[in-house]
């Protein structure tokens, strides 16, 4: 199988001195669907931010064989789609259309192609009728789905999601999980939603206090009750 992300000896210290990541080593293969679990402040989000070069620190991160550095940033950001936790951060343009078109336009596509991509991304999340709607007129569940569309329109190879089901009600959560299930691309999902991990992730990574504690198949991790209990994940 093709190695799509390779992380070697990655550490990160925030400017205020907080150690966020300690010596992370992780290999992710094409088509994997990885659930990243761990308590708040474990460093999950910080690790995700390294995957498309928002944060760059010592140690090495390679995406599709390309080292993540200033020079490769454009290429890597087209391949790695990062959906932020708060949809109000993800949706910054006045209208839904402009938001979903933002990525494709920056990729340098012509306007017809941009329109096609926007239409298909909005269709995928079932929001075609919301094109001209204004960001703050949407409900939370709608915002979450449009957030996903803003990344889908860029057709990334790797989808990185931070808390995709956080704050969603049961119905929308179920719909969102089904959406994710339908996507056959590499997924990395940081979450507290264990049931979602069980239903869509093939592998699980446990993080705690900036360290990667365990990385294995979902069955093995969830079979190890002691490990889960030790990190407050039972």
């Amino acid at each position: 199988m093709q190695k799509i992300i390779e992380i070697k000896n990655l550490s990160y210290i925030y400017p205020d001195g907080t150690v966020a990541l300690k010596d992370i080593n992780l290999d992710i293969f094409k088509g994997d669907s990885i659930g990243m679990i761990g308590p708040n402040g474990a460093g999950k989000t910080t690790l995700l931010l390294h995957l498309n070069g928002i944060l760059i620190s010592n140690g090495s991160v390679k995406v599709c064989e390309l080292p993540v550095n200033e020079r490769n940033l454009d290429k890597i950001r087209q391949r790695v789609g990062l959906v932020f936790q708060d949809p109000d951060d993800q949706l910054f343009m006045p209208t839904v259309f402009d938001d979903v078109a933002f990525g494709p336009i920056n990729m340098g596509l012509d306007s017809d192609r941009v329109r096609i991509k926007v239409d298909s991304a909005l269709k995928f999340v079932d929001m075609e009728d919301y094109k001209d709607r204004i960001g703050h007129h949407l409900s939370f569940g709608e915002k979450k789905r449009v957030s996903l569309a803003t990344i889908m329109s860029m057709e990334p190879d790797i989808l990185v999601l931070d808390e995709p089901t956080g704050n969603l009600d049961l119905k929308h959560r179920k719909e969102f999980i089904n959406l994710l299930k339908d996507m056959n691309i590499t997924k990395i999902i940081a979450t507290h939603d264990m049931n979602m991990v069980l239903s869509i992730c093939s592998k699980v990574a446990i993080m705690d206090q900036g360290k990667l504690i365990a990385f294995d198949t979902t069955e093995k991790i969830f079979g190890n009750k002691e490990l889960l209990a030790a990190h407050g994940l039972d």
């Binding site: 928002i54 259309f97 920056n106 860029m154």
Partner: peptide, 23 residues
């Protein structure tokens, strides 16, 4: 802080200092 996060979200989608929209 939100402004920081929004800026990161913009960068993640290939923002290079100029917002472009379709006419």
């Amino acid at each position: 802080e939100r402004a920081e996060r929004v800026y990161l979200a913009m960068c993640a989608r290939g923002f290079q200092g100029e917002i472009k929209t379709l006419d």
